[in-house]
Design a binder for these strands. Structure first.
Lengths: 126, 126
DNA sequence: TGCATATGTCATGTTTTCTTACATGAATTG
DNA sequence: CAATTCATGTAAGAAAACATGACATATGCA
């Protein structure tokens, strides 16, 4: 499962291909990068190079936008995901204290309603 | 298994990416196309666009060349593969006659020695 | 009405790729 | 040995793709 992950994160696609695969304009893709939602690599000539993971992320962003969530909201979604991933990794790195467990469970429940079944209220631009 | 095949045959990679993934020069890749060993698609602007299957094929070609097989030999290899695939499909399309079976078995045995265990003598330039 | 957001469009410069042509070292053949 | 063929390198000029920056605009909200 490690090699597959590597392949999915290989930056091999130019923006033209990504436009076709996602049906997004170059302007949109660059804007999402500007907003920090994706961070495509650059080749030696400064061309953006995208991975399959980037494609997935872009399609997700598209869905969120179609659902009426704005940039700020999407950023928050990914912030939460990042923090959850970080916690999970920390949990793997060392044995969990009771306090960890409580905090993780708390966050899980906190995020359940907002991110899965129901997008919830549209996030205001903080 | 059908969707995976589709993804593998999607022409999404520019030649620059292919160069890096295969460690072949643009000259080599174009030459192999000229020889009919690969047939990359073209985008609207006439740029070659490669699929993952093309990458596999190029790496195969590289291996064959490293083994001392020349273009003519490699062409023959792929010709045989194509014919075998055609026969297999024909076999699926209609019931086999005894004669079919005999002929297919014959070809299988014929190709066994040459293509699998031992590359055999280097093919002369036809 | 005025402002912020998300996207379109245009201009200009750089990078990538295309085709065509010629060059070349290694192997082959007469 | 001289002449070919093969597989690849290299260079030139044109076209396509992409980058950045600026300005335009529709939409929704305060």
């Amino acid at each position: 499962m490690k090699e597959k992950e590597l392949r999915r994160s290989l930056a091999v696609l130019p923006i033209g291909t990504v436009m076709k695969l996602t049906d997004l304009s170059a302007r949109q893709i660059r804007y999402y990068e500007e907003q920090g939602l994706i961070v495509p690599e650059r080749n030696a000539g400064n061309r953006r190079m995208f991975s399959l993971n980037d494609i997935d992320r872009l399609l997700e962003i598209k869905d969120y936008l179609a659902d009426g969530i704005n940039m700020a909201g999407i950023k928050e979604v990914y912030e939460l995901q990042k923090q959850r991933a970080k916690q999970k990794q920390a949990a793997l790195a060392r044995p969990l204290t009771d306090d960890d467990v409580r905090r993780i469970l708390h966050d899980e429940f906190l995020n359940l309603g907002r991110l899965q079944s129901d997008p919830g209220p549209h996030y205001p631009a903080h």
